[in-house]
C-alpha cells in the first residue's frame, strides 16, 4: 500500500499543482474579464469615431457595424483584410450609403516602418473620404487614389481590400 502510494505520489503532485494553478488563473481571468471586454469595446468605438465623428451609438451584427446618430441610421462600417508586403493589413471601412465611402482607417498592419506604413498617414487615408465606390482604385488602374510614396504594394493591398469588401457588403445591404 505504501509503495503504491509512493509510485503515484509524483502523479498526484503534478495533478495538484495543475489544479491549484487552474483555479488561480480562473480567478485572475474573472477579475480581468470585465476590464478586457470594456477595453475592446472602447477600441472599436474609438475607431468608429474616427470615421463617424457624429456617431452617438453603434450596433454590431453579422460582421457589420450599423452607426446611429440619435437613433437615425447614418452609415455602416466593416473590416476588410488585404495581403500587404509583410502580412495582413486590416482596414475598417465606413460606408455613407450604397455608393459612397465615409472613409477608412488602418486597424493593424505589419508593413515596413518608414515605407509601407505610410498607408496609415492622413495623406493617403483622407483620399477615401466621401469617395465614390467606383473611384476606389489606384490612378494607374483608372481610379482616383494616389498610392503612398514608396508603398506601392501596401497601397495596392489596401485599395483592393477596400473595394472588394465594399462591393460585397453593398450587395448584401441591397
Amino acid at each position: 500500500m505504501v509503495s503504491m502510494l509512493r509510485r503515484f505520489l509524483p502523479v498526484l503532485y503534478i495533478t495538484l499543482v495543475v489544479l491549484i494553478t487552474v483555479t488561480l488563473l480562473n480567478f485572475t481571468e474573472s477579475i480581468t474579464r470585465a476590464q478586457i471586454e470594456a477595453r475592446q469595446h472602447e477600441r472599436i468605438e474609438a475607431l468608429l469615431f474616427e470615421l463617424f465623428p457624429e456617431m452617438s451609438d453603434f450596433f454590431f451584427e453579422d460582421d457589420l457595424y450599423t452607426i446611429f446618430d440619435n437613433s437615425t441610421e447614418i452609415g455602416y462600417a466593416f473590416l476588410a483584410t488585404g495581403v500587404g508586403y509583410a502580412g495582413d493589413i486590416d482596414v475598417l471601412v465606413g460606408l455613407e450609403d450604397a455608393t459612397t465611402l465615409k472613409g477608412i482607417t488602418v486597424v493593424s498592419h505589419q508593413e515596413t516602418p518608414g515605407l509601407g506604413d505610410r498607408i496609415t498617414e492622413s495623406d493617403f487615408i483622407n483620399q477615401f473620404r466621401g469617395l465614390d465606390i467606383d473611384g476606389v482604385a489606384l490612378r494607374k488602374d483608372g481610379g482616383q487614389v494616389d498610392g503612398a510614396t514608396g508603398a506601392t504594394i501596401s497601397s495596392q493591398a489596401v485599395v483592393d481590400a477596400v473595394r472588394e469588401a465594399a462591393m460585397e457588403k453593398i450587395k448584401e445591404l441591397r
Binding site: L24, L25, T28, T32, I36, R39
Partner: peptide, 9 residues
C-alpha cells in the same frame, strides 16, 4: 498567463 491577462486589461 497572469501577465498576459493583466496587460490585456
Amino acid at each position: 498567463t497572469i501577465v498576459s491577462l493583466v496587460f490585456q486589461a
